[in-house]
Computed example of a mutant assay.
Amino acid sequence: MVDKSEKFSWLVRLGFAARGVVYLLLGYLFLAGSGQSQADEGAQGVFNYLQEVPGGTPILYLCALGLVGYGLYRLSSLLFDAENYGKDKKGIAQRLGHGASGLAHFVLAYTAFQFAQGEQQSSGGGGGGGGSAQEATSTVLSMEFGPIVIGILGLCFLAAALAQAKKAITGDFMERISPRAPGFTKIIGHAGFAARTVVFAVIGWSFVQSAWLDSSSQIKTLGEAVSSLRDNGVLFTLVAIGLLLFGVFSLVMARYRTVPDLDPDGVKPAYRT
């Protein structure tokens, strides 16, 4: 009989696989001219693409389930310090970042579920996700402390970009990947995290600019951040390839990532000490 810890491990691994599918297809859509409008919509464009291909609906349901699992995994880092980051300032900052990532993946999971049920359709014009994001931002900016909130979110994205850059440079993302992983894992990891560095920096700067520097500017979602690089052909292509490789890297992690065990009560996940 499969115990709770093993079930949790499979759910987390499905989460890494779901993340891999999203990034892999997003990079592919950016590189394929025919998928440009869907790619501009980021994850929603990916889900719309899956909605249209044969067998896409079961994949969407699996993505939704996996993204929930990944969200729970990230929240476990915040609540239970599942990855042993500790309680110093650096550790708390990393855990808070994981908590925010968990919530974001719950939103993605709900979106994937809506597409799987046919309750949501992509706008097809690159403005679906971006339009709702702009509306939400405008609402927040109209509040008394709105610019401060948006600006802080921008700084958080810029901090995340620095964290991605550190991983891209040092390769410390390999610390919790099994040595049995394929030899190319570290190479594609470097490329993937480098691409995410650029994307997070563009998103963060758009938040800061919209909040504090130019009220007429618009914040950028994931898809829009990559699209904004299209005029810089080489950088755009490298980032798109990097995102595709990060998808492959995530699929490798689904198999070889070290996942914490649940405690004897089957509640709190934590690495063995």
Rank of each mutant, 00 (worst) to 15 (best):
E6W: 11
F8N: 10
V12D: 05
L14M: 00
G15T: 07
F16H: 00
R19C: 09
R19G: 02
V21F: 02
Y28N: 03
Y28F: 06
A32V: 10
Q36F: 11
Q38I: 04
Q38E: 13
A39E: 01
E41S: 10
F47V: 04
Q51Y: 13
V53R: 09
P58F: 00
I59A: 04
A64W: 08
L72A: 07
Y73A: 07
Y73S: 00
Y73D: 06
R74H: 14
L75K: 01
S77A: 07
L78Y: 11
D81R: 01
D81L: 06
D81H: 08
A82H: 00
G86H: 08
D88A: 06
K89V: 13
R95C: 14
H98F: 15
A100F: 07
G102Y: 05
H105R: 11
H105I: 08
V107M: 12
Q114E: 15
A116Y: 06
Q120D: 10
G125E: 14
G125W: 14
G129V: 08
G130T: 15
A133N: 09
A133S: 13
Q134D: 06
E135L: 11
S138Y: 11
V140K: 13
L141I: 14
S142H: 15
S142D: 14
M143P: 05
I152P: 09
L153K: 13
C156Y: 14
C156Q: 12
L158S: 04
A161C: 10
A161W: 09
A165W: 12
K166Q: 12
K166V: 11
T170R: 00
I177S: 10
S178L: 04
P179S: 10
R180E: 13
A181W: 07
P182M: 01
F184C: 03
F184L: 01
F184V: 02
T185V: 08
I188H: 00
G189C: 00
H190V: 01
A191L: 03
G192C: 07
A194V: 07
V198A: 10
V199Q: 10
A201W: 02
I203S: 06
S206F: 07
F207H: 12
F207M: 01
W212M: 10
L213Y: 13
S216T: 15
Q218L: 15
K220S: 12
T221N: 02
T221A: 05
G223W: 11
A225E: 07
A225P: 09
V226K: 11
L229Y: 06
L229P: 05
V234M: 08
L238C: 03
I241S: 00
G242W: 01
F246R: 07
G247K: 07
V248Y: 08
F249N: 02
M253E: 13
Y256P: 05
P260R: 11
L262K: 02
K268G: 08
R272T: 13
